[in-house]
């Protein structure tokens, strides 16, 4: 991973290191299954790392299970409470059935985002195919739940009531477009924020190198502040992803507001 170092690519101080190099997928263990490239890549490695670190965190923090929680256990309890309250507030107690899914989704996105903040690491969520896969799971799952719960009555979701019949076809089309927007906005939001943030950091990192010891302090100061903002964004994006999943679940379960 050391070859992801920006310094390796910016030859001297005159040329900029490529800020997009950090997003390159590298095949660590080439593998082909029935003509499909299933190589173990750096992206896959960081997904595994996120899953392992999450599991380790939760197992370690809850192994003591003391009545008065220690630091680690408090952290796990806060995370649990945070997501549980989110589900309860947005979906109601009927939605607690889906709490494990929302918790997994939230913590996985958060872990991927936060791991990406570590220098030289790879940000899994900066690839649209990853975020779109996550969003598609949510979208398809929620649609199935809607139809399973309401049968064909779920189609009424697209029919606004109290509308003159002449306008109805137009409004149904608009509602359908609005519904189909969900996976796109869900995935693009996460991917674009992560990619833009990390590119910005790299670009300003390049400025520091270019301007050297005399002028490099200004972009360095900016980078420190921007890294703080990026940590906030990493958390906020996981939060937004989870809360929108809750809102979509609520729509599928209750249909009305």
């Amino acid at each position: 991973m050391a070859n992801q170092n920006a310094g390796d690519h910016g030859a001297g101080t005159s040329s900029m290191p490529d800020p997009m190099h950090q997003f390159e997928i590298q095949r660590w263990l080439p593998l082909e299954v029935f003509g499909i490239d299933a190589s173990f890549t750096n992206s896959a490695a960081f997904m595994v790392l996120a899953a392992i670190s999450l599991s380790a965190f939760l197992l370690l923090s809850t192994s003591g299970r003391s009545l008065v929680p220690g630091r680690l256990q408090s952290l796990a309890e806060i995370t649990y409470e945070f997501v549980a309250n989110m589900v309860r507030e947005n979906v109601g107690t009927a939605g607690m059935k889906y709490f494990p899914f929302v918790f997994t989704l939230f913590s996985f996105v958060l872990a991927c985002n936060m791991l990406g903040m570590i220098p030289y690491s790879f940000t899994v969520t900066s690839h649209i195919i990853v975020t779109f896969a996550l969003a598609a799971i949510v979208f398809v799952g929620v649609t199935i739940i809607g139809f399973a719960k309401h049968g064909l009555g779920f189609l009424k979701f697209f029919v606004p009531s109290g509308v003159p019949a002449a306008l109805l076809p137009l409004l149904v089309v608009i509602e359908v477009i609005s519904y189909l927007t969900r996976p796109v906005s869900l995935s693009v939001r996460l991917f674009a924020n992560m990619m833009a943030g990390h590119t910005m950091l790299k670009v300003f990192g390049g400025f520091v190198v270019m301007l050297g010891a005399w002028g490099g302090w200004a972009p360095l100061g900016f980078m420190v502040a921007f890294t703080g903002l990026e940590v906030l964004v990493a958390f906020l994006q996981a939060y937004v992803f989870a809360i929108l999943t809750c809102i979509y679940l609520n729509d599928a379960l209750h249909m009305h507001h």
Binding site: L180, T181, V184, V188, R189, A192, L232, L236, Y239, V240
Partner: peptide, 20 residues
Amino acid sequence: GKAMGYGLRIATDIIAAVVV
């Protein structure tokens, strides 16, 4: 934090709808 969450949602919701 919640307000920023709403901001992020609104910005992409409108663009994504046009793209879709």
